[in-house]
Simulated assay, not measured.
Amino acid sequence: MNYVVVDLEMNPVSRDYREVRRTLRDEVIEFGAVRLDASFAQESTFQCYVKPQYGPIRKQITALTGITQEKVDGGEIFEKQFQAFVDWVGDAPTKIYSWSMSDIKQLKNECRRKLSDFDLSWLDSRWVDLQQAFDDRLGLHNSLALKHALGAMDRNFEGTQHTALDDAINTSAILVLMQDDAKFRKTMQPVLDILQPKEDLTSSIGDLCPELAALSKEL
């Protein structure tokens, strides 16, 4: 079994395309993925830019991701880049992970419009919501953002946030940690203590992850 962690960056469909926006609000403009082998060791990476078909890159997207119109103009359209991703995943049994289900929803919506012959069960049969698995392991009722999940692990984000490949690599670190239950519990014990407070508990996770501390008050 192989394990792929994927992240997408997206750009909103221009309001000039009203009919398209009824079913497709965004377009993928970058794929980033890392493949882990059966031992969860990093084996390969995948990254490409995608040229949007329904409007130019918005300024706020460039500010967030660093992706410019010039970068995507040098890439292929979605149909070719998605097929390149599928080919890179390969035929070996593979689970594909993302942080939340937003990425698979995006791919399914975009495939319906641009690759109507693609069998969406290829995605459904492989996809795992790592964010939900992480939250379930901790007993959280609210989902954590990737940077806060890393903060709870006492791990700094490596690279640049909202860069698809860096996001995928950092997400894969969470997947790797979750394979060792004893190490996971030891690493996450400060979080577990907050979720199951004792009367004499005086420590706070606020400095580590303020949003998680706020969430713990709701539990």
Score class of each variant (00 low, 15 high):
L150V: 05
W88Y: 03
Q106S: 10
K95S: 12
A145K: 15
W99N: 11
L120A: 07
F85T: 12
I104F: 07
D154Y: 07
L130S: 11
L138R: 08
R137S: 08
W99A: 09
R137I: 02
Y97R: 02
L123H: 06
K147N: 09
I104P: 05
I96K: 09
D91W: 09
S98W: 09
G151Y: 01
S98Y: 05
G139K: 06
D136S: 12
K114R: 15
V128T: 10
N109R: 15
S121I: 00
D117E: 13
A145L: 02
D129Y: 04
D154N: 14
F134G: 05
K114Y: 08
V89H: 10
R113D: 01
T94Q: 12
H148F: 03
G90T: 05
R137D: 03
D135P: 00
D124L: 03
W99E: 06
L150A: 11
E110N: 09
H148A: 01
I96Y: 10
I104S: 13
R137Y: 09
L150D: 06
D124E: 14
Y97E: 01
E110F: 10
K105L: 08
E110W: 14
C111V: 08
F82V: 01
K114A: 10
F85N: 06
S102N: 13
F134C: 03
Y97H: 07
I96L: 13
Q83C: 03
S121R: 03
L120S: 07
G139P: 07
M101P: 00
M153V: 12
P93C: 09
Y97T: 01
W88S: 01
Q106G: 12
D129I: 05
D119T: 04
D135W: 00
D154H: 12
L146K: 13
Q131R: 11
R113E: 08
Q132A: 10
F82A: 12
V89G: 10
G151I: 00
K114C: 08
A149G: 12
D136L: 02
F82N: 12
S116R: 14
N109G: 10
W127M: 11
C111W: 06
M101F: 00
D87V: 05
L150Y: 05
G151L: 00
S121Q: 01
L123E: 05
W122G: 09
D119E: 13
A84M: 04
V128L: 07
Q106D: 06
D103E: 15
L123S: 05
S143F: 03
V89T: 13
V86C: 09
F85A: 06
N142Q: 11
K95L: 12
K147W: 02
V128N: 13
R137C: 02
E110H: 14
G90Y: 09
R113F: 04
S116K: 13
I104A: 13
